[in-house]
Simulated scan of single mutants.
Amino acid sequence: MLRLAPILASMLSVDLGAALRRARRSALFWALAGLFAFAAYAAALVAAGLALAAHYPPATAALMVCLSQVGLAALALLGLAISNAVERRRQRKNDSQRTLATTAMIAAALPMLQSRKGMAVAAVAGLAVLMALRRGGDEQE
Rank of each mutant, 00 (worst) to 15 (best):
R90E: 13
A74I: 07
G137M: 09
R92H: 10
A43F: 07
M11L: 14
G118T: 01
M64K: 02
A109Y: 00
R92L: 14
K93I: 12
P58F: 03
E87L: 14
A42W: 08
A18E: 14
L63G: 03
L113H: 00
L130F: 09
A74C: 12
L63I: 04
R21W: 09
M11A: 15
L113R: 02
A128N: 08
L75C: 14
A9R: 06
D138Y: 10
V129R: 06
F38E: 11
F36E: 07
A54V: 11
A128Q: 13
Q69W: 03
A23P: 01
S26R: 15
A51L: 09
A39M: 12
E139R: 09
K117S: 14
T102N: 13
R89W: 11
M112G: 11
K93F: 06
L16S: 15
L67T: 10
N84W: 11
L113Q: 04
R24E: 14
A81N: 08
A43H: 03
A109Q: 02
L110F: 02
R134M: 12
L127G: 14
A120W: 08
A54C: 09
A43M: 07
K93Y: 10
G137S: 13
A62R: 04
N94R: 13
T103D: 13
A125L: 14
A109V: 01
M119G: 03
L80K: 07
T103A: 15
M11P: 01
E139S: 09
L100P: 00
A9Y: 01
L45E: 04
N84K: 09
S83D: 10
A48I: 02
L72H: 10
S115H: 03
N84I: 03
